[in-house]
């Protein structure tokens, strides 16, 4: 029985019945308003222990606000969440002690050496000298920074900084790590190397909560949630999300004037969605219809030079454009 005056069992916004022992994060009806604006508008989802969970959405959709609430930095204005079993409102400090956090800014002190950065974070998380020695060795190995301990962090390449940041964020061996766009601005090789590190961590049973806007990275995730205008509009495995479009046909059109063609197709009969993906025009013609067959000729007669048309498997990006379109807005 819960005693309201017993500090060992603080009141939680999330009913115990919702929380299972293999859940790393349980979010229930969580919302955050700034004045009249609901940045996060009542979201629910669960992250299992050991999962790589992808949290996607366009800028300004509520991603960062959600992470800040889950890290116990700001309090929700409604609902709540449990993170590693701790309530984010009443046990924020315990939440913070049990998670790691790494943002795209890497949060390293550029004017400190590699060793000084590590030592600082070890001090913040209260590591013993023996524990620090062990973790330091591990991180230097992992980040490939052996021999550079005395180098100023500011002089390291972006890839090294990123791995050192991950090392600092995980110096206290958290079982759950939040990564807020950890790979933005990093070259593709370093990104691949970084994901190898993340996969290693996940293999060791660490739960990873990752936001990214690289769709190829989203496919690394076990499960995804897509947030748009403060609401979760899709959740599931990458496969499940792509299944949204299983019955639709996506045509990839190579056309000289992509933007012009896009404008011409907008609102035309038989065209469900049309958008640029890289240099290509993607057209969702819905369930197989006449539109598929006569698209090149329709564009041709409107004066556009069509270089080729292919039917492609829907990608995650196609799925998200579709999902956002269903919300009555554009990403």
């Amino acid at each position: 029985m819960r005693m309201p005056w017993n500090p060992q069992q603080p009141e939680s916004c999330v009913p115990d019945s919702l929380v299972h022992s293999d859940d790393a994060i349980v979010v229930s009806g969580m919302r955050k308003s700034f004045g009249d604006f609901a940045a996060v508008d009542g979201i629910d989802f669960t992250v299992k222990k050991g999962e790589i969970f992808g949290f996607l959405g366009p800028n300004g959709s509520g991603k960062t606000t959600t992470i800040r609430m889950l890290c116990g930095v700001i309090e929700p204005t409604g609902g709540g969440a449990r993170v590693m079993g701790y309530d984010i409102c009443s046990q924020a400090e315990l939440v913070r002690a049990n998670i790691g956090y790494m943002s795209q800014k890497f949060s390293l002190f550029q004017d400190l050496t590699v060793d000084e950065n590590l030592k600082f974070y070890a001090g913040i998380y209260g590591l013993s000298a023996a524990k620090f020695a062990e973790r330091r060795g591990y991180i230097l190995e992992m980040a490939d920074l052996r021999g550079r301990e005395k180098e100023l962090t500011g002089n390291l390449s972006v890839g090294w900084k990123q791995r050192l940041a991950l090392g600092c964020a995980t110096i206290h061996e958290p079982r759950l790590i939040f990564l807020d766009e950890p790979t933005s601005g990093v070259d593709p090789t370093a990104r691949r190397h970084f994901w190898e590190l993340l996969n290693e961590l996940a293999a060791g049973g660490v739960t990873l909560f990752v936001t990214t806007h690289y769709m190829d990275e989203a496919t690394h995730c076990n499960r995804l949630a897509f947030i748009y205008r403060g609401r979760i509009i899709a959740a599931g495995t990458p496969h499940e999300i792509k299944d949204e479009l299983a019955r639709d046909t996506i045509l990839q059109v190579e056309v000289a004037d992509g933007e012009g063609a896009l404008a011409a197709l907008e609102g035309e009969p038989g065209i469900k969605e049309a958008y640029m993906q890289g240099a290509m025009l993607h057209v969702n013609v819905g369930e197989r219809s006449a539109a598929e067959a006569d698209l090149p000729s329709r564009l041709g007669s409107a004066g556009f030079r069509v270089l080729g048309t292919d039917r492609v498997e829907p990608t995650l990006e196609d799925a998200f454009v579709h999902l956002v379109g269903k919300q009555g807005g554009r990403a």
């Binding site: 890290c71 956090y101 943002s103 800014k105 949060s107 002190f109 913040i124 998380y125 964020a169």
Partner: peptide, 9 residues
Amino acid sequence: TYEQLVVSP
């Protein structure tokens, strides 16, 4: 770096 400090205990 402040962002990092506020998520620490």
